[in-house]
């Protein structure tokens, strides 16, 4: 710049040099005087935009479950989630059973973030004294900016193992007591308030009630949440089970509706559902309650987060 100005000066007749230079100098001074502090900020923001990193969407759901179905949310690395899930009895049990509140089944569980992308979970349900375990792996994360991934994708594999003692079923060995679940969880946060998830599911039962019942059952679950305040949302969770897979038992689609509220390290979920089971082989493939008949269970999930390890 400096060299070029000198070069121009040498080829211009002397009488015009001073005029030109004066003009140039005045122009430069006026430009520099006009430059306000906001220009500095604008330059910073432009430079920040130019080197923007990928930003991922956060808070697609508040909890690691929409209601019954697991959500794409996972605990962070070295974060431990302790969950207590409760389902009371059926509302149509009537006043004598205090509309179901006298009878409760529960599941206690832990979920731990091995990394930000892998979660291991274990749980124990009172129903049939069932242990369950699962592994969740995050494959894709929806990007907010600086990327082009339109949805989050998580794979889930798990098993159920019941340990209830039967006096009349001597054939019940470990194999017959075990059921499996394999799921893809596909979710998109459409707006800051609305998130939807689609969860194609493959269930495998080692033991089915009758020969004509399928061991492999396929279910398509869909769920979503709509935030109503910054810290609460309304959730719906529906599991569509295509017909004729379990002909010996009348199974219903699982439908749940509830309300989430989060406070600090807790998430509370209260809901009504026609499923009493709280693991996938139970609520997805073995829901025997019918909304139409009033087989509605009141329930809640509570999550508490603990941060293990230093950062």
């Amino acid at each position: 710049m400096k060299n070029r100005s000198v070069h121009i000066i040498n080829i211009i007749p002397p009488q015009k040099k001073s005029l030109l230079l004066t003009c140039t100098a005045v122009l430069c001074v006026s430009v520099s005087l006009r430059a306000q502090d906001t220009d500095l900020l604008k330059r910073l923001n432009d430079s920040m935009m130019a080197t923007a990193k990928t930003v991922y969407v956060s808070g697609t759901f508040k909890g690691t479950r929409i209601i019954n179905t697991q959500s794409v949310e996972m605990p962070a690395k070295q974060e431990l989630l302790f969950s207590i899930m409760h389902r009371f009895g059926k509302i149509n049990d009537g006043a004598y059973q205090f509309f179901g509140l006298d009878n409760a089944t529960m599941r206690m569980g832990f979920e731990y973030g091995i990394t930000d992308y892998i979660t291991a979970g274990i749980g124990r349900s009172t129903f049939q004294k069932t242990f369950d375990g699962f592994l969740k792996v995050r494959l894709l994360r929806q990007t907010a900016s600086g990327g082009h991934i339109p949805f989050s994708l998580t794979a889930l594999g798990g098993l159920n193992h019941n340990t209830i003692k039967y006096t009349n079923k001597p054939y019940m060995n470990a194999r017959y007591r075990t059921d499996y679940v394999t799921q893809l969880l596909i979710a998109r946060k459409l707006t800051r308030n609305l998130s939807l998830q689609l969860s194609p599911t493959w269930l495998h039962y080692n033991l089915v009630p009758e020969h004509r019942d399928h061991n492999d059952v396929f279910v398509l679950a869909a769920g979503g949440r709509m935030k109503i305040t910054r810290r609460s949302s309304i959730n719906v969770d529906f599991c569509y089970i295509p017909p004729n897979q379990t002909p010996s038992v009348k199974v219903y689609h699982s439908l749940s509706a509830g309300f989430d509220i989060e406070t600090g390290g807790h998430v509370f979920q209260v809901h009504v559902t026609n499923s009493q089971g709280m693991t996938e082989p139970l609520f997805m493939g073995r829901t025997t309650g019918s909304w139409g008949k009033g087989d509605i269970y009141f329930g809640f999930n509570i999550y508490r987060s603990f941060k293990l390890g230093k950062k």
């Binding site: 520099s32 306000q36 502090d37 500095l40 900020l41 910073l44 923001n45 920040m48």
Partner: peptide
């Protein structure tokens, strides 16, 4: 991101 201009005595953060 921060910039300090000593001649114009302006400063910005983002």
């Amino acid at each position: 991101y921060a910039a300090v201009d000593l001649s114009k005595r302006t400063i910005a953060f983002s």
